[in-house]
Design a protein around this nucleic acid. Structure first.
Lengths: 226, 226, 226, 226
DNA sequence: CATGAATGAGGATTCATTCAT
DNA sequence: CATGAATGAATCCTCATTCAT
C-alpha cells in the first residue's frame, strides 16, 4: 500500500516487480504522448501485460501516474548522492552533484518533463507528496552549497535558497528546453558552461553587505578587490 | 486565417473579437483545469457563448489551445519592451526587462504553466510556431544582454545564449514553482534576489578556478579589472 | 430535476418527452432482460436514440431505472381511481379497484416484475421513494375498504391493513406468477375468482369479537355448525 | 452432476460438502447485494475458499445461483412437512403448515427475495426446474387444503388452486414486504392475523352476493343459511 | 450569425474465467 | 485438490463535433 496506492495482490515482491514493470512502461508512454493522451491499453501494451493486470496493482490510472512521477523524483534523490560519493572537496562535490543531476535528467528527459506537465493532474494530497520529494532533492543540494559556505568557498551571505533553485532550474531546463539544447551541445558541455555562469559569483567573491530593505534596484559595482 | 486557424465567419473584426473572447476564457479554463480536463462546454460557458459558436471561429479544440498559448507568449513579447521603454542605461534596462518579464508571468502564472504543460498537446507544426515565439522573446533579452556587453558592462566573452536561458528559466520558475515562491516572497523581492545571483558574474568578476578539463574554448582570465 | 434526477437540457417539455421515450424503452428492456443484463446501448437502441442522449437526460443508468420504476408505480396510482370513477356502491367500487389494479398490472407484467426485482438495485434514498409510492397506492385501496366498513358491508373489526396487503399481493401475484396464471386464465377470470376468495369473509360475515391478545391459535369453531 | 451442474472433482462427498459451503456463502452474498452485484470473489471470500475452487465445483457463476435458489426452495419443502409432523387435525395441520412456511421464510428473508429477484437470471431450462420446485411446495399445501375439504371443514367447491396461491403469496409477502411488516409485527402475529383473513371464507361461510355475471361454474348457495 | 440538442467513437474500469504452480 | 495471478471481453460514461433551427 505504498504511498496510499493499494494492490489487489498480496505477494509484496511481486507487487514491487509488476509495479516497476508498469511504471517503466507508463513513464515511456506518458513521456511520449502525455498522460491524458495515453490510454491504459497503451501502457499495458508497452509493459507487455494485460489491461486487467494494471488494475490489480494500481487503483486507477492516476495511481500509475503518481507512482511514475514519484519514481522519477526518487531516481534524482538516489543518483545525486551516488554521483558525489567519495568527493571531499566541497566545490568539486557540488559540481559533481550538478553534473549528476543533469545526467539523470538527460537519461530521463521525457520523465522529467512528465513530472512537470502532469503533476497538476494529480489530486492535491499527491501533489504535496511530489513537492515533498522535490524538497528533499533540493535539501541535498542545499547541503552541498552550505558545505561550500562553511569551507569559505562561497560567501556566507549567499542567498542559498534561491541559489539552489537556480541550480535546480538549470538542471530541469536541460529537459524542459531539450528541443533547444540537445541539438546544440552535450549534457557535459551544458553542465560545464552552466556551472561557469552559476558558480563564478559565489566563488569567493565578497558581496557587499546590503541593508535588508535594499533588495531591488541599484546595485553598485562590486567586489573582489584584488 | 491567422496562423493557420480558420474561421467560418467572414467579418474579420468580428473574428478578432470573438476569438479574443474565447481565448481569454480558454486561458482561464485551461489554466485552472488543464487542457484535457477542460471541455469545450467549459470554455463556452466561461466565455458566455454557445459551444456552436466556438466552432465557427476555431477549427477544433486544439486550435483554441494553440491560439491561447500564442496569446500568452505574445503578451511577453509585448510587455517586455513596454517595461523597458525610456531606460537607456543598458544594465538598468536589462534589470527592467527581467522585472517586466517576471511581472507579466506573475500576472499570468496559470497561463505560463499552461504553455509549459500543453505545448506538447499541439501537433508538431504548431509546437514549432510556439518555439519560434519563445525564441523571439529570448532574442529580445539577448539584445539587452548584448547591449550590456557592447557597453562594456558585461565581459565580451559572456556565454550569452546560456545566460539568456538562465534569465528565462528564472522568470519561468516564478510560475513553475509558484507554489514554493509565492507564499515566501513578492515578485519584486524575487526579482531583486534573483538578479543579485544572476548578474554578479557577468558583472566582470575574475574567475578564480576552472575545472581541470576546461570545457569549450579556452577562456582567459578576465576582465574588467578596476 | 424531478425526484433528484437532473437533466443537462433546459427545455422542460423536451426533457419530459425524452425521458418518457427513454423510460418506456427502459421498462421494455429491463423488463425483458433485467436491469444488470441490459446495457445502456440496448435501451438507446430500443428508444431509437443515441447513448449520449440518454446521459443528457439522466445522470446515470440507475437514474433510468429509478424513473422507470416510479413510472410504473405512478401508473397504478393513476389508473386505479380512473377505474373506479362513477361507481358509488362501496363494494362495487372496491371490486372495480381490484379489477383496475390487476388490469394495469396485466398490461405491464414485465414492468411490475421489474419493480419487484430491481428496487433493491437503487440506493436507499430512492428505495424509500418507491416505498412511499407504493404506500400511496395502498392508501387508495385502504380508503375503499374503509368505505365498505363505513357502509356496514364489511365488519368494522376487519384487519384493514393486512386486508389491503392481501389485495395488493393478489394483484401483484398476477405479474409475479404470470408464468403460472396466464396460460390458465384471463385477468378477468383471475380477478373474479380471487375476489370470491378474498371478499367473502368481510362481506357482512360477523366476526366474533376476539380479545386483542387472542391473535394466533385457538380459534373457536365458528360458522360451520355441525 | 446434480441437476446438470457438473464438478471437476471426483469425490462425491467432497463435492457435496464444498458445494454446500459455497452455496451458503452465495445465498448470504447474493441475498445481501444481489446476484449481479456480487462477484465470484465475494462469494469465495465469504466461503473462505479461493476463486479457483469454486470453478472446480461449479461450471460457472450461474450454476452457483441456480443451486443457491434450489437450496432455498428445497428448504421450504423440507421444513413445511417437518412443521406439521404429528398434527392430525386437518385445519390445525394447515395452520401449522402456513406457520412453518412463514417461519422458514422469516429465517431466510434475503434468500426468499433472492429467489424472486434472480430466477429470471437463469436460463430457461433452469427457470423451469425452479418452477417445478415451487410447484412441489404448492402441492404440499394443496394436499393439506384438500384434506380439509375431505374432512368437511372446507367447502368442496373451494377454489383450491387459487386458495393455495393466496397462501403462498401471503407467506412470500412476509419476505417481499419485510421492510413494511417486520417493523410492525412478529411473524407469529403476522401468521395469526393472516390466517384470520385467509381462512374465514373457506370455513364454510355463506356467500351473500355474487357478481352479476358469475364467473366459472355455478356455485350454489351453501352452508350456513341464516 | 448564434444556438444547443444530438451523436457515437473512444476510454477507464470491472470481473468471470482460466491455468500454471 | 487448491490457489490466486493473469487475462481481455464487455460495459458505463464522456465529450468533441455537427447541424437543424
Amino acid at each position: 500500500m505504498k504511498l496510499g496506492v493499494k494492490a489487489r495482490v498480496e505477494d509484496a515482491a511481486l507487487v514491487e516487480r509488476r509495479r516497476r514493470q508498469v511504471v517503466n512502461a507508463a513513464i515511456a508512454t506518458f513521456g511520449k504522448r502525455g498522460y491524458h493522451a495515453s490510454t491504459v491499453r497503451d501502457i499495458a501494451k508497452q509493459a507487455g501485460v494485460s489491461v486487467g493486470l494494471i488494475y490489480r496493482y494500481f487503483g486507477d490510472k492516476e495511481d500509475v501516474l503518481f507512482l511514475a512521477i514519484v519514481d522519477v523524483l526518487d531516481s534524482y534523490r538516489r543518483r545525486i548522492p551516488a554521483g558525489t560519493a567519495g568527493i571531499t572537496d566541497p566545490l568539486e562535490r557540488l559540481r559533481a552533484a550538478v553534473h549528476a543531476y543533469c545526467s539523470v535528467i538527460d537519461a530521463n528527459v521525457d520523465a522529467t518533463v512528465l513530472a512537470y506537465r502532469e503533476t497538476k493532474s494529480l489530486r492535491k494530497a499527491r501533489r504535496n507528496v511530489i513537492k515533498q520529494k522535490e524538497a528533499e532533492t533540493n535539501a541535498l543540494l542545499a547541503r552541498y552549497v552550505e558545505d561550500c559556505i562553511a569551507a569559505g568557498i562561497f560567501d556566507k551571505r549567499l542567498d542559498v535558497a534561491l541559489f539552489v533553485y537556480q541550480i535546480v532550474m538549470f538542471a530541469h531546463a536541460w529537459a524542459l528546453k531539450a528541443w533547444h539544447f540537445r541539438p546544440r551541445m552535450s549534457v557535459d558541455e551544458y553542465v560545464a558552461r552552466g556551472l561557469e555562469l552559476i558558480l563564478n559569483p559565489p566563488l569567493g567573491v565578497s558581496r557587499l553587505r546590503r541593508p535588508a530593505s535594499a533588495w531591488r534596484r541599484t546595485r553598485g559595482r562590486r567586489g573582489r578587490s584584488p
